Simulated scan of single mutants.
Amino acid sequence: MLSSLLVESAVALSIKQLLLCIVTSIMLGLLVACIHMYRNVYSKNFVITLAVLPVLVQLVIMLVNGNLGTGVAVLGAFSLIRFRSVAGGAREITSIFWSMGIGLATGMGYVSYIAIFSVIIACFLVFLNTIHFGEKQKVAEREIKVTIPEDLDYPDLFDDLFQQYAYTSSLDSVKTTNMGSLYELRYRITLKDSQTEKELMDAMRVRNGNLTIISGKVSTNREEL
C-alpha cells in the first residue's frame, strides 16, 4: 500500500514538504540548544533533548493535523515533558517551550514563520545575556560565628564594626559552649566590599580575645540550575 501511494505526485509533493519540515525542525532545534548553552549551566542530555524535541512534537502534530484530536494530542505532548534530569529553572522552561513551539509550527506547515521568529528570538536572547540584562549587583552575604568569653557583654559588641564594613547586620542566635565558659554568636551580614572581610575579622579578633571566628556563605535552599 505504501508503494502505491508513493507513485502519486501529490504524495511525492507532501514528502518533499515533510522533509523540509523535518530539516527545519532539526536545524532550529540545534539553534535552541546552542542558544541555551550560551553563558549558561547545562547538561549534555538536556541540550540533546532540546535539539530533538521539535522533531518529536512535529511528528505528533502532523499525525493529527486537521483532526478533532489535535487539541488532545497537543495537551498530551505537553504532559510528556518532565523536569527530572534538570530542575525547571526559568531559562530551561523558556528553551523547552521554544523547542515545542518550533515543533508545533513546523508540524502545521509554518516553516518560514517559525524560522524568522526563531532567528529573532535567538538574537534577542544572545543580546540580553551579553549585556547581562536583569543581573543584580553582587553583594557579599556572610554568616559569621564568633566565640567570646562569658564575661564579655555581647549586645552591641560589634555594632560599630558592622556599621563600618557592612550594609546590614543581624544577630541570629546565641548559645553557650565549653561548659558555659564561652558564648557563640551567629551574625548574618552583608559586606560593603568583599575585599574588607579580613579587616573586619581582624578587628573582631581584637575584641573577642583572639578566639575562634568563622566566616562563611549564607546557607540557602536553592534549586539546581
Rank of each mutant, 00 (worst) to 15 (best):
I96W: 05
V126E: 06
A10S: 14
V32L: 05
R142D: 01
V7I: 10
L68Y: 14
F78S: 08
Q137T: 13
A87P: 09
I148F: 09
L30S: 07
V55R: 02
L30N: 11
Q163E: 09
S112Q: 10
M204Y: 02
M201T: 07
D172S: 15
I131S: 04
I214E: 15
L59W: 13
V52W: 05
N40V: 01
D159P: 00
I116C: 13
L13K: 12
S215P: 07
S99H: 05
G71I: 07
I15D: 02
V64I: 04
Q58W: 05
C21M: 12
L18C: 11
N208W: 05
L104E: 04
K136G: 10
A122G: 03
E135S: 14
F124M: 14
A73F: 12
F162M: 05
M1W: 10
A166R: 00
G76P: 04
L80T: 04
L211T: 08
G66K: 13
S173V: 01
Y42W: 13
E143D: 10
I189E: 03
I102F: 14
Q137E: 15
G180K: 11
G76L: 01
L56P: 02
K44G: 09
L6R: 09
L225F: 15
S173L: 10
R142H: 02
K217G: 12
L211W: 12
R207Y: 02
C123P: 01
S85L: 14
S169R: 00
E143F: 12
G103S: 04
T70V: 13
Y183P: 00
P54C: 06
I116W: 14
G101A: 06
V126S: 07
G107R: 08
G29E: 01
W98V: 00
A77L: 05
A51C: 01
L75H: 06
L171M: 12
L20C: 09
K175C: 07
H132C: 09
L31S: 01
E150N: 15
R222D: 08
L53N: 04
A90D: 04
Y113F: 15
L104W: 12
Q163K: 15
H36S: 11
Y167Q: 12
N178L: 11
A203C: 03
L182T: 02
T177M: 09
S219Y: 15
A90W: 11
M179F: 15
